[in-house]
């Protein structure tokens, strides 16, 4: 054993784990590596950036509005003289936090419902109709109702910032799991009939629970990967129209939204003034 670890030629014989395999395969995919690097850079920037670029993102300096790129303002300033770079960093932090948590939530809900529906035939109909219901619900009224019902309670319990964070995560989470659920269910249905499940059953894999979790669940990996694309589909519905999405939600999202707008404001910026 000691020999094998020393001899380089014998290295591949080392115990292969799934993680190592995945990592090895991943390293060969150049696009993947580049993507991962970019993502890592974004995380690092967003986490440590504010300590290095120590400008307050909400500090106004109206005399320095609409500045171009300079040393003091690496991305220039917006129409109120706020530092864009600091805003992008701060906005990125919120976006990342909200995005990742909401996505995990929607994946969790979607996968749970999808697997249950695909596997437990008795629940299938009910769960899929629930999915249909959520797909049909109009988003804006739903948001307004959720805000009306929960904003003040959450605010009182968790304070304004955490409260709104939870609200946003909750809203995005519960409005974007449906696609995942449907695809996972479809995949489970198809995988269920594959030979290896039959094999697992026939060799007496202990109980149905174990069977579902260990054997069927890992298979639909491909559709789930696709479902990562789910959350952005949110944008196709009512959300992005100006900032018409209910006020408080804009609170955290707006930073990123505003920054994004500023980046290509020359043509697309919309700052429509209120009617009354």
């Amino acid at each position: 054993m000691t020999d094998t670890t020393i001899a380089p030629a014998a290295a591949p014989r080392k115990q292969r784990t799934i993680t190592a395999d995945v990592f090895r395969q991943f390293r060969q995919h150049r696009g993947g590596v580049i993507g991962a690097c970019i993502f890592l850079t974004i995380i690092l920037l967003v986490v440590f950036g504010p300590y290095i670029h120590g400008v307050d993102p909400s500090a106004l300096n109206i005399r320095d509005k609409n500045q171009g790129i300079s040393l003091a303002h690496p991305m220039g300033t917006d129409n109120l003289g706020r530092d864009m770079f600091a805003q992008v960093l701060a906005g990125g932090r919120t976006s990342l936090a909200v995005g990742v948590t909401a996505m995990l939530l929607s994946l969790l809900v979607g996968t749970t419902i999808g697997v249950t529906a695909g596997y437990v035939r008795r629940l299938d109909g009910w769960l899929m109709r629930l999915t249909d219901l959520f797909l049909a619900l109009p988003l804006l009224p739903l948001l307004l109702v959720i805000i009306m019902l929960f904003r003040d309670t959450l605010r009182a319990t968790f304070g304004p910032e955490t409260g709104i964070f939870l609200l946003i995560v909750f809203v995005i989470g519960i409005t974007s799991w449906m696609q995942t659920a449907r695809i996972v269910r479809g995949a489970v249905l198809s995988v269920k009939e594959h030979e290896f499940v039959l094999a697992a059953k026939s060799i007496g894999t202990r109980d149905r629970h174990h069977h579902r979790i260990r054997v069927v669940l890992p298979r639909p990996r491909l559709p789930v990967r696709f479902s990562d694309l789910g959350p952005p589909a949110l944008r196709r519905r009512e959300l992005p129209r100006d900032q018409s999405l209910a006020g408080d939600l804009a609170g955290a999202g707006a930073v990123a939204h505003r920054a994004q707008r500023q980046l290509y404001r020359r043509r697309t910026a919309r700052c429509s003034r209120p009617a009354h």
Binding site: S58, L60, I62, N79, L80, P160, D242, Q243, S244, A246, G247, D248, A250, A254, R258, R270, C271, S272, R273, P274
Partner: peptide
């Protein structure tokens, strides 16, 4: 109300009120 011009105005006013020692919480 939620509107980008109004939110910009809010941000500016909050800043000025901060200067004179008034704390502002914004809501749209």
């Amino acid at each position: 109300s939620t509107n980008s011009v109004r939110q910009a105005t809010q941000a500016l006013v909050k800043d000025w009120w901060q200067e004179i020692g008034v704390e502002t919480e914004l809501r749209n």
